[in-house]
Computed example of a mutant assay.
Amino acid sequence: MFNYNELMDAKRTRIMGIINVTPDSFYSGSRVDETNLLIRVEQMIKDGVEIIDVGGESTRPGAEAVPLEEEIRRTVTAVKIIRKHFDIPISVDTYKSEVARLSIEEGADIINDISAMRFDEKMVEVASHYKCPVVLMHMKGNPKTMQENPEYKDVVAEIVEFFDERIRYAKEHGVDKLILDPGIGFGKKLEHNLEILKRIEEFRKLNYPLLIGASRKSMIGMILNLPPEERLNGTLAVTAYCAMHSVEIVRVHDVKENKEVVKIIEAIKSIKNS
């Protein structure tokens, strides 16, 4: 299934496709239910997706938490259905250890935790037991409060410091397959998000793969003055930038378009200087 060592070695950008089994994610085009789940995943695979990311709780700014039982019903059911039909790496987007555990038992490969294993103290136990890769994301506050005037003296330096602590914590508990997500839009103003992207190479000192999730987010809407439904072009610009900087994973809603951008950028990069 998912080969973490290959992710570490290959300097190319993979497409992670978003599957939201939620009724309230910020972009309506990403929402699926059991009736169209397999159709959506099959299309993503045809379009070149390399990881499917399944989430059962919206973490948009201001979002309310979903009860554990409901998130299990949404997420674990979706993982089980996808794994029954497709041999594709599956990431589970959750900060709840029980959702992660049950999803892994049904065939998920990666834990994508927006809290970087801070919100549920048992998450690190699950990750250690199953030896699965974990996405550690930076977020200031929680989804309900994170956009209430976040401030930083140096956003990149503070995120690097945060990752240093989280990496130590993970490794102390036997979790060493890590992917780092600076958390575009999670407790950041527009200028913070742009600073993160501009200085993306500074995260390389941490020696772990990077993930960027900017697809159709408010950062793009603020720059272009467009709603989520009209932010594809802006998303593709960010993906191109990430591919130029060899970001290992971009998490996106629109697989085909983003995959084509990455292919063009990587074709350009592959030409050796004469």
Rank of each mutant, 00 (worst) to 15 (best):
T77L: 12
D113K: 04
Q43G: 05
D33K: 13
V32R: 03
G62F: 08
F119P: 03
I45N: 04
G48V: 04
R118Q: 14
T75H: 13
Q43R: 08
S103I: 01
S103T: 01
T77Y: 12
K80R: 12
E69L: 02
V92T: 09
S91N: 14
G62N: 07
R74S: 07
E98P: 01
G62S: 07
I51A: 12
F86W: 04
T59E: 02
E70I: 03
S103M: 07
I90G: 14
V32P: 03
R40K: 10
F119Q: 08
I104H: 12
I88M: 09
K80L: 04
E70K: 08
I104T: 12
V54W: 09
V41P: 01
I81W: 08
I82C: 11
V49P: 10
I82V: 13
V49L: 13
Y95P: 07
I52T: 11
A100G: 11
E106A: 13
I114W: 03
F86D: 03
D33E: 09
S91R: 12
R73S: 13
E69R: 02
K80M: 02
E34I: 01
T75V: 14
A63H: 07
E34A: 07
T94W: 11
R83V: 03
V41E: 07
T35P: 09
A78T: 02
M44N: 08
S91A: 15
D47Y: 15
G107A: 10
E57N: 10
A65W: 07
V49C: 14
A108L: 12
D53L: 10
E106P: 10
V66A: 15
I104Q: 11
N112D: 12
G62D: 09
E34G: 14
I88G: 04
L38G: 07
E70M: 06
P67W: 01
A65D: 07
N36Q: 14
R73M: 11
P61Q: 00
L102V: 01
S91H: 11
I88V: 06
K46Y: 09
I39G: 10
N36M: 10
I39Y: 10
A116I: 00
I51H: 13
G48F: 05
G55N: 03
D109C: 11
K84D: 11
L102G: 00
L102A: 02
R60L: 00
D47L: 09
R31G: 02
D33I: 04
T75N: 12
I88E: 06
G56D: 04
I111M: 13
E42I: 00
V92E: 05
V66L: 15
I52R: 14
R118H: 11
F86A: 02
A108S: 15
D87C: 08
K80H: 08
M44V: 06
G107F: 06
A65R: 06
D113N: 05
R60Q: 00
G55S: 08
